[in-house]
Design a protein around this nucleic acid. Structure first.
Lengths: 244, 244
DNA sequence: ATCGACTACTGGTCATACCACTTGACGTCT
DNA sequence: AGACGTCAAGTGGTATGACCAGTAGTCGAT
């Protein structure tokens, strides 16, 4: 019996999600107006402060524009939304959006090596020791979910070493999109987190202090799973074949 | 006389900024508790709903954790905050944080070429035509601010062509951090947005459809200004020299 | 026809009350 | 003395209703 922490969804959360769905899933296009706060409160059967809180969060996410005295209008989220919207775009109407997933893989493959290159130039000797320990933990684990957790910790350490606030924040945002799906991704990522050797090579490269070596090593860690997953996504996105 | 649109700061905005400052500027460390909503409302002289709205926004940004019945505690923003916090970190206590600015430049230099490579593989013939027009507009302008606007539009188009939701959202987040400072940055970016030739080469590379060529061309557009700015930042970060 | 005031909306803010949950202190039982 | 329930105080969660402050369209006077 597997128990899970109960998730308490607050009323404003619920409202936020519903309005967000309307905007993101295209029920209300850019430029169109939302119903007034009072009307929404009435329709949804909640209080106006609850609606207000949700709309303000929408505004803070740059998804809508609220004007005192005027109507609240929908903005073009593709043009204005920040990276924190990613988790919500990755899953649209309950289904994985394959084109978004593809972009995540591509970005990961592009950015990971860049971060590794920065980290190599800055890490110092402590970094290699830390990373070696993390890889050891990774190697000592059998469970694919736990391996992912360790791999995540590994990259977390690399990002730290890169000493880049922008990459740190990007990593945080991506992790926020990734972690909820960690269990579902276990079989898909097994290939990557299983290649302990590649991680060891990367660790050595990071310790060596040479950015280009580290970049290449990071590429070798990330590329195999990236390419096989991209292939799988492409197959998913293609309409089902009709051969017997 | 230069008139500017009046900025109306709402009460919750004000509260949000104040609490955010406490958290980001280190007055309240991770794990510590915030005063209760009622207490904050009293101290700040505003209503509880206003405080609540601000705290909920903090929670949505993953900067604090509010627990029903318990205290609201501060989280480690370096570990959890998303890319949308960047504008606030770029400027701390009214001053530019040079290490954050450095990371922005590094990230730009790393990601720009990657995006260009993707765009080259996907853009099609329309892309080159669009970009040529944007470069023409860029070339026809004398004002450094306007040039930046055109350069931004140029990259916007490139990101579109890359057909990557992740890079699109990253671009949006970065632009949100960049645009407010556009005017102040004009003299610094003049070097980059002035090199129309480099942009034309990049345009041609993007049109050619070869990712590697495009990557290299993008690097040539971004690198000069990046390096000179990194040098300037390093000089800024170093304590003033004491030679006569 | 133009202009201005008016009116009927919109969001912004507040005060207050009550519900739901967590915490920790207190007392009781073993 | 320790372990265990109970309960009160404090916290966030939600709702109500009122009023302020802007906006935009209407309608009348000029």
């Amino acid at each position: 019996m597997v128990l899970q922490p109960v998730t308490r969804r607050s009323v404003p959360d619920e409202v936020f999600d519903q309005v967000l769905a309307e905007v993101v899933d295209g029920q209300i296009g850019p430029g169109e107006s939302l119903p007034s706060e009072r009307r929404l409160a009435e329709v949804l059967g909640v209080s106006r402060p609850a609606v207000r809180e949700a709309l303000q969060r929408m505004a803070a996410t740059r998804l809508v524009e609220v004007r005192h005295g005027g109507a609240t209008t929908v903005r073009d989220f593709r043009r204005h939304a920040g990276l924190d919207l990613l988790p919500r775009l990755l899953v649209r109407r309950g289904k994985l959006d394959t084109s978004v997933a593809r972009s995540v893989l591509e970005a990961r493959l592009a950015i990971g090596p860049a971060v590794a290159a920065l980290a190599a130039g800055r890490g110092g000797p402590v970094l290699a020791a830390d990373l070696t320990q993390t890889v050891d933990e990774l190697a000592a684990t059998d469970d694919d979910v736990q391996r992912q957790v360790h791999a995540l910790a590994y990259w977390d350490r690399v990002v730290d070493a890169a000493d880049s606030m922008v990459f740190r924040l990007m990593f945080n945002s991506l992790r926020a999109a990734y972690e909820p799906a960690l269990e579902a991704l276990a079989p898909l990522m097994a290939e990557e987190v299983g290649q302990v050797d590649a991680y060891r090579v990367l660790t050595a490269a990071l310790g060596s202090g040479d950015p280009d070596t580290a970049r290449a090593a990071a590429d070798r860690v990330l590329r195999p799973a990236t390419e096989s997953l991209l292939g799988a996504l492409a197959a998913l996105a293609t309409p089902p074949r009709e051969d017997p």
